[in-house]
């Protein structure tokens, strides 16, 4: 079954990483990803820009409302995701544990089974 692993963290903390620390975390996360890729279990992966770059379109009546930033103000923000193929929740939790070892400290991973998946393809 496909699972989405959604990454949440305080973006102020992530923003306080030095370039070296950021690179180091990315290298360690890449190692976890590579293992999954070799096993043919890794789908799309994304790191999102800070929420300051985000815009929300909120459906409301006839004319949707456009809001700067994410709709909800929370202590931890949605900062990225992985799509992985796992036989069970335990496997998905194991992968999340590996990710948390590669990127320790604050934050959390939300493991969400995927209902419909269309990987799609962009042309540019």
């Amino acid at each position: 079954m496909l699972y989405a692993i959604l990454c949440y963290n305080d973006e102020d903390v992530v923003g306080a990483w030095t370039k070296e620390e950021d690179d180091e975390v990315m290298t360690r996360l890449a190692a976890v990803q590579e293992k999954l890729t070799k096993q043919g279990r890794l789908g799309p992966v994304a790191r999102l820009m800070p929420t300051t770059a985000a815009t929300t379109l909120r459906k409301s009546g006839n004319e949707p409302i456009v809001i700067d930033g994410p709709f909800a103000e929370t202590k931890e923000q949605f900062l990225g995701f992985y799509v992985v193929d796992c036989a069970s929740l335990d496997e998905a939790l194991d992968i999340s544990r590996e990710l948390s070892i590669a990127n320790p400290g604050t934050g959390s991973y939300e493991i969400r089974p995927i209902s419909i998946f269309r990987p799609g393809q962009t042309t540019s």
């Binding site: 102020d12 903390v13 923003g15 990483w17 620390e21 975390v25 990127n103 400290g105 604050t106």
Partner: peptide, 15 residues
Amino acid sequence: MTDANWIDAALTAAR
């Protein structure tokens, strides 16, 4: 990243 690293980042962010 060691403990000291992430704690340092958390302190800087909270400052």
